[in-house]
């Protein structure tokens, strides 16, 4: 399935026919973008921009590519926030943050 098909499938309104889908359940890369996969999070990472040293250890460690980056003026990547649509709240970013006064902490997810 490609991204458009995944979006259609995820909507559950018009399920695809066998003739419309690739054999073997093949799913194209990048289809997770179409899903909100972070809605069952129990704990939520909180990022303090002013404490962050932009070492990007959290970005390396994040299993869900949920650390958002952008290139700054000198074309170095800097952290800009957390993608709460895909973060599962595993807490690895908070654990790995090397800043003594943590730039990322975990708190309970309030629904």
């Amino acid at each position: 399935m490609n991204r458009a098909q995944i979006k259609k499938a995820a909507s559950c309104q018009a399920p695809l026919r066998a003739s419309e889908i690739a054999p073997a359940g093949l799913v194209e890369a990048g289809t997770s973008v179409e899903f909100n996969t972070g809605d069952w999070r129990a704990n939520r990472p909180k990022w303090f921009k002013e404490k962050c040293i932009h070492c990007l250890l959290c970005w390396i460690a994040c299993p869900d590519s949920s650390i958002l980056l952008k290139a700054d003026k000198v074309k170095t990547s800097v952290m800009t926030g957390i993608d709460y649509g895909h973060c599962k709240g595993c807490g690895i970013c908070a654990k790995e943050c090397p800043v003594k006064d943590k730039a990322i902490i975990m708190e309970e997810e309030k629904k």
Binding site: A9, P15, L16, I21, A24, G25, L26, V27, E28, A29
Partner: peptide
């Protein structure tokens, strides 16, 4: 790139 061998339940 693509994913092969993903889970499919009652839907697919």
């Amino acid at each position: 790139p693509y994913t092969l061998g993903s889970i499919e339940l009652q839907d697919y």
